[in-house]
Design a protein around this nucleic acid. Structure first.
Lengths: 205, 205
DNA sequence: ACAAAATGTGACTGGGCAGTCACATTGGAG
DNA sequence: CTCCAATGTGACTGCCCAGTCACATTTTGT
């Protein structure tokens, strides 16, 4: 948690510092990110940073937390369709929107990618917490799909989550080429999801 | 490439140095791995290392190359079954064996995981080369499966590769807990592959 | 207007790093 | 045995880092 001095700062100065910290953590994973670089870019003194945050890790946790909050808000509208549309259609929308997020907010996106890749012991507990949140949310969805009959009853929930999670990572995290064609990537997302859908839907024997 | 002085060394000294370098690159990704640490652990002088290798990157490339060679040899027997067994059975064997490799050679395995995660510009060209090799090999298999009729004709090869690659990464790379039960993880691998198989097999309408 | 509290500062500390170099040691050719 | 090229060495350079601290400046309450 940032110290109270940080929150006492005028909002625009808070954002200024936050933005430069976020950019550094987007460029480099936690271990290689440099506090000295952040304060230089932000034009504030090193010592000031230590008035706001207790150290590098504190700043990092704050940045990751804020970025996740931001992304969750962006994805919120899709969750609200949960009871209105089919499980598989919802997943399609969810992945498309996740990908749009990565396109619209590449800096935030890169922070998240670096976060998931981190091997640092202290960061890993945060990763596990976040992972559990994702699992819970998805398990919810699956339960829903299972009850409404679009998912074969024999499918193990954990297995299904695993498959989607694995695919999502590569589907969204690694398609950031600015030159990429939006429609063709959306089509690609759907073709990948189609394979999974066929694998999960009940068989008509 | 190592300098000739390295290859002039007695084989056991080469292996001694190699082993300690490999352990360091298993513990840390390239950027965070420390040459000073390697020479300390190996009990040789810093300067000697520079007689053998032109620098950190040279040593790293050599280690990754050797580890990949080792892994490929381990997987070789499965490839040789290519023409003898069903596409899906072969994939099951392939993933099981990959996982056994990770269990049997955790150090080598971790080097490979770190290699794929690397964001370093100079390392990335190696990654792309390796990726292309994997794609080619898999495309071959897929073609085979497609011709023998076990894969639905409408499936795009690139999409299929993508799905398997994404799943493989999580299936093998992230199950290294030493306490894990071998049989239950093999069963898990198969249940994941079953979903993909259902998604790819031709439908009987 | 003033003092005290809060905030801002950047030189400094101690440490780690890759890579270098002048020198020491070794081993093989003649 | 002698000499020279190949090999081994670790102190050293220059760099970057997180975190600290004595001091400077600003804000706040009275």
């Amino acid at each position: 948690m940032p110290k109270s001095t940080f929150f006492n700062l005028p909002k625009d100065k808070q954002e200024h510092i936050f933005r430069h910290a976020m950019e550094e953590f987007a460029r480099h994973p936690y271990e290689q990110a440099s506090l000295s670089e952040i304060v230089k870019k932000a034009g504030i003194a090193k010592g000031s940073m230590y008035q706001y945050f207790s150290g590098k890790k504190d700043l990092y946790k704050y940045v990751v937390q804020q970025v996740y909050r931001h992304k969750r808000e962006y994805l919120q509208p899709v969750w609200e369709l949960k009871d209105k549309i089919d499980f598989f259609r919802m997943l399609s929308m969810y992945y498309r929107r996740s990908w749009h997020y990565a396109q619209a907010y590449p800096t935030q996106h890169k922070v998240i990618v670096n976060f998931w890749d981190s091997k640092d012991a202290a960061v890993r507990e945060e990763i596990l917490r976040e992972k559990q949140t994702r699992i819970n949310v998805f398990a919810d969805l699956l339960e829903h799909g299972s009850r409404s009959g679009v998912i074969a009853p024999g499918i193990d929930k954990e297995t299904a989550w695993f498959v989607y999670h694995a695919v999502a990572r590569d589907l969204i995290d690694n398609f950031l080429d600015p030159g990429i064609d939006i429609h063709s990537h959306e089509a690609f997302i759907d073709s990948v999801l189609a394979i999974l859908e066929l694998g999960l839907r009940p068989r008509k024997e």
